[in-house]
Write a protein that binds this DNA or RNA. Structure first.
Lengths: 193, 193
DNA sequence: TTGTTAGTGTGTCATTTGACACATTTTTTG
DNA sequence: CAAAAAATGTGTCAAATGACACACTAACAA
């Protein structure tokens, strides 16, 4: 619960009562490694807050190859927003790469929250904006960088991922082969010694 | 004005009075090719709606190389959201690549709009969500694709850009050299004939 | 119109990458 | 613990790419 409280407080200063009101909308779960939050074809009806752990977003190409779309580290919000807000079937799966603690906000609870008052509607709007900013940053990170540069950024900005995520998944995330990523790592090690 | 009206109507059905109220917040401008909307180092104080034309987002590497971050086609909203909503200095420039018609919503007008009523606050929230969905789609388009695949997607989904944007800028957007993009195009032409 | 500049097309060559094959190591599972 | 499965490390080779050099063309301004 700590990360979530902290996140909400970073958005806006909340009284104890306000915080309790917010938290009354969510349900906390512990899920073991390998558990799917949602899968390709599902209607995603919840927004999740990842309290601890790592999540893996992926889908399959027509050729049946698994492609990593995103890797998410706690603390963060996670859902398929397109599916959640427009009730389309999701085109991706999201699976826990480690044991995770998540908080779930279901669609009915979400709707009830934003219709409570302008206060909460604007609170949610601010969180949506922050998420948008974060995604735009992610684009800036990806856009127009070589695989090598992107790997370095990853190692700098999200070192935790490298501990937990298999090399071949990182390779898929960076859009390269596991062999090439291996070569990049090898030259790293040589340079550092 | 047409594209903007149409966009608002696609978000939600609005009465003539509501539409006029919304439009009373914006100011329309014609700007010639080459005009900057904002530049690296600016505080971005407006959200723009691109009625017609193409915009170029870019910045410079430490080595002084110009890097294309995004290419935007009308109709779309455009700003540096990070700068706009958190009052940081922008790390990118946005310049008109063609003559453009834009609608400007300044920060004071924006604030006044979202504080008018829950109705308009939620209207803006919906637009923010739609933008977020659009950016996430853009990520899916970029992530984990070869330059060749990304070029094809661009040619399919945004053929208008290829008419207007110089090859070398597209190359920069795709993260490759102009020579390589040229080779990709050349093999295209050979295959189609 | 005529320079001037920006943009494109093309060839060469060193380097990087992907694909494949297989050895080795680590992790999982019965 | 032992066997099986998953993941990683490594070599080879063909193909793709980047960097450079320079010719050619289009767009623009004096």
């Amino acid at each position: 619960m700590e990360a979530l409280r902290k996140y909400f407080m970073s958005v806006e200063d909340l009284s104890a009562g306000e915080m309790d009101f917010l938290l009354s909308h969510i349900k906390t779960k512990e899920i073991p490694k390998g558990t799917p939050l949602f899968q390709e074809g599902d209607l995603v009806r919840s927004i999740y807050f990842l309290e601890s752990g790592v999540l893996h977003h992926f889908n399959y190409t027509p050729e049946g190859e698994k492609k990593t779309l995103r890797l998410r580290e706690a603390p963060c919000f996670c859902t398929d927003l397109e599916s959640f807000s427009t009730a389309k079937r999701s085109e991706q799966s999201c699976v826990a790469m480690t044991d995770c603690t998540i908080h779930e906000l279901t669609k009915p609870k979400y709707d009830s929250l934003i219709n409570t008052s302008m206060r909460w509607s604007n609170f949610v709007k601010t969180i949506t904006e922050l998420s948008l900013v974060k995604v735009l940053e992610e684009i800036k990170e990806i856009a127009n960088k070589s695989v090598r540069e992107r790997y370095h950024e990853l190692a700098e900005k999200r070192p935790g991922l490298l501990q937990v995520v298999p090399l071949q998944t990182i390779a898929s995330y960076l859009g390269t082969s596991r062999e090439t990523l291996h070569r990049i790592r090898r030259t790293e090690i040589l340079q550092n010694s």
